[in-house]
Nucleic acid binder design. Structure first.
Lengths: 99, 99
DNA sequence: TTGACATATCGGGAAAAGTCGATATATCTT
DNA sequence: AAGATATATCGACTTTTCCCGATATGTCAA
């Protein structure tokens, strides 16, 4: 749990949005309904919604993953990203008691 | 409560340290014991402990103050900075439920 | 009111982050 | 094996952040 890395990951409008979108995948990524959301949402969907290039979004996802805020799962040619709720709970506690 | 502004303020090692030092002023700024800590700690003390220039530390304090994480009180020629615990509590809740 | 001290603001150079297009890699299909 | 598709990585350019020294502002004391 590297505080600084986490806060840097959160210091970007688009990355904050992505994390919020991933809170309600059904709502924010309806196109993926047919494949389910068990593993999260794949990069392409997120990219489309973010309106930035593929490379940028891929990099952003790597950043929030390295910070531990999401997990990624490769399934075939897709990589799915999903929120790591434990990390948010831990961060909340950290802010409350250690920060 | 501007999330992005808060996270940007927290994305710097020195600023994180300052906030942590301010959690226990008696412990971290013993030189100021004689003046009490009711209003917080003055810039010079913080600068000395941070080991950066006066201008840099002053700027950092402004940044965390604009983010709402500390409050400042001018007393004579000194400006005292103090943690705003309500802000941390609110941030903790935000991370837990909205982020 | 002058000088000393504390803090804030300004201007700038260096380092990091944002963002892109191009290319590499991995997987699937045929 | 070859082409198509999804994602990751690379190189470059632009914008932002870091951090400094110099200077301005505000306050106290003589």
């Amino acid at each position: 749990m590297d505080q600084l890395e986490i806060f840097k990951a959160l210091s970007n409008k688009t990355r904050l949005q992505i994390l919020q979108w991933l809170k309600e995948p059904e709502l924010n990524f309806p196109d993926q309904e047919k494949y389910g959301f068990d593993n999260g949402v794949c990069v392409g969907q997120i990219q489309h919604k973010a309106g930035l290039t593929q490379s940028t979004v891929s990099e952003y996802l790597t950043i929030i993953q390295r910070a531990g805020l999401v997990t990624s799962t490769r399934v075939g040619q897709w990589t799915y990203y999903k929120r790591n709720e434990e990390a948010f709970a831990a961060l909340s506690k950290l802010v409350e008691s250690e920060l």
